[in-house]
């Protein structure tokens, strides 16, 4: 799995961090998404897919 994020699209809602805190974080100053783990281990796949689906701004792209 490969994850790509688009910072420009991110609206800082924090949904990805709630679902998948091991893979996503947010910058302190403006809440923009930070990718902690661009190639997550298999056990994270389900939550990463959910984070992409839940993102209101469609800022997370998952390639499998």
């Amino acid at each position: 799995m490969k994850i790509a994020i688009e910072e420009d699209k991110c609206c800082g809602a924090g949904q990805c961090v709630l679902v998948s805190p091991e893979v996503f974080d947010q910058r302190d100053e403006d809440g923009i998404v930070v990718l902690l783990e661009p190639n997550p281990p298999q056990e994270q796949y389900a939550t990463v897919r959910e984070a992409a689906a839940v993102c209101p701004a469609a800022a997370i792209e998952v390639h499998e």
């Binding site: 709630l18 974080d25 809440g31």
Partner: peptide, 9 residues
């Protein structure tokens, strides 16, 4: 504003 509204903050 977003920095003050993140789950972490």
């Amino acid at each position: 504003l977003t920095g003050r509204f993140t789950p972490k903050s």
